[in-house]
Design a protein around this nucleic acid. Structure first.
Length: 259
DNA sequence: ATGACAATCAGAGATTGA
């Protein structure tokens, strides 16, 4: 089972690039972030014609997450528990019914800039809720993963110019500690299982020729429960997608599970 | 210190992103 995460930065603008990638990469499941679309405007039929079932959790203009799956989905839920007043669409869950069922959570973690301020407070509060949800998932003792745009640069290794990010919400010690606190509950960063190499990024700014200079950061992650990590066969970043026509600023990251 | 780039909504330019 091949499961991918992809911050597409607008479903409407990314339809050609996403469609081409689906046909090339043939993922079974795709967790999408920043669809920037309301549910009723999402091009559902387009993906159904390609063989995917579609579940969305959208909002107008900003944020929004979705799941595309070639396998049946069960028990779909929307919204990260812990704040019924949270109007931002950043979390969707479903169980993928493969040979081994896998609970998948697609997430778009708040950016948090500028620091300090209400946006950073929201980021930290959201990560506290994520920690609580992660604990519940672990207690199930079943294959589960949380994947998406975490807006966290876990280590200096994950940035071309780490010093440029040290005061930023993506890499502040407080941000990194909140991420590690979740990881250390017992989750595995799937990408680092296979590669300790530097210069492996999932995001490059549109500005200043960042892609051409490989001036990137690794902020799109897969965290796997122990039962899911036992199924892990591969994890790769499809960096080449950043060089395509009308690319997103993020590229797909995927895992292969023996499930 | 600022802007550069892109997407959205709207129908110009502000807002958001990382």
């Amino acid at each position: 089972m091949k499961i991918a995460t992809y911050n597409i930065n607008g479903i409407k603008a990314r339809l050609p690039a996403l469609t081409a990638w689906l046909k090339e990469a043939e993922p079974d499941v795709v967790l999408l972030q920043e669809i920037k679309s309301q549910d009723e405007n999402f091009p559902r039929q387009h993906f159904e014609d390609l063989g995917y079932v579609v579940e969305t959790h959208g909002q107008k203009s900003f944020n929004g997450v979705a799941i595309l799956s070639r396998l049946p989905l069960e028990d779909v839920t929307r919204g990260l528990p812990g704040d019924g007043d949270d109007a931002q669409a950043r979390w969707i869950e479903a169980t993928v019914m493969g040979a081994v069922p896998v609970r998948v959570c697609g997430l778009y973690l708040p950016n948090g800039n500028p620091v300090p301020g209400p946006k950073y407070d929201y980021k930290l509060a959201w990560m506290e809720r994520l920690h609580a949800r992660a604990q519940v998932l672990l207690e199930l003792e079943e294959p589960a993963l949380m994947a998406g745009d975490y807006n966290i640069i876990p280590q200096d290794l994950d940035a071309k110019r780490p010093e440029a990010w040290h005061e930023d919400a993506l890499a502040l010690p407080t941000s990194r500690a909140a991420y590690r606190r979740i990881e250390h509950l017992g989750f595995t960063d799937a990408f680092r299982v296979f590669s300790g190499q530097p210069e492996q990024y999932s995001f490059w700014d549109f500005q200043r020729g960042a892609w051409e200079r490989n001036d990137g950061i690794r902020i799109d992650h897969f965290l796997l429960s122990p039962e899911c990590a036992d199924l892990l066969a591969d994890c790769q970043i499809d960096a080449h997608m950043r060089g395509r026509e009308k690319p997103s600023d993020h590229v797909p990251v995927w895992v292969e599970l023996k499930a």
